[in-house]
Computed example of a mutant assay.
Amino acid sequence: MKITLTGVRVDGRREPMLEPVDLAWSTGETVLVAGEPGHGHTALALVATGRFAPSAGEVRLGPTPRGARTEPGPARAADLRAVSAVVDVPGVSEPDDALTVAAVVAEGLALAGRRSLPTDVSRWLAEHSLTTDRGRRLDQVPGVVRTALLAALAAEREGVRFLVLTLPDRHGGEPSGWWEVAQTLAASGLGVLVQCSRSSARDLGVDLPPAHGSFAVPPVVALRSAPEVTR
Rank of each mutant, 00 (worst) to 15 (best):
T6F: 00
V8E: 03
M17L: 15
L18A: 12
L18H: 12
P20F: 11
D22W: 07
A24L: 08
W25M: 03
T27Q: 02
V31W: 08
V31L: 07
P37N: 11
L46E: 15
T49Q: 05
F52Y: 12
A53S: 08
G57N: 12
P63I: 02
P65D: 09
R66W: 07
G67Q: 06
E71P: 13
P72T: 03
A75G: 11
A75W: 03
V83I: 15
V86Q: 10
D88A: 10
D88Y: 07
L99D: 03
T100A: 13
A106P: 05
G113F: 02
R115H: 12
R115F: 01
V121N: 00
E127K: 04
T132H: 07
G135P: 00
D139E: 07
Q140I: 05
V145K: 06
L149Q: 11
A152H: 10
A154I: 02
E158Q: 09
L163H: 09
L165G: 05
H171P: 03
G173D: 11
E174T: 13
E174G: 09
S176Q: 13
S176V: 15
W178Y: 14
V181K: 04
T184G: 04
T184P: 03
G191N: 01
S197M: 09
S197G: 15
S197P: 06
R202P: 01
A211T: 14
H212C: 13
S214E: 14
A216E: 08
A216T: 10
R224L: 01
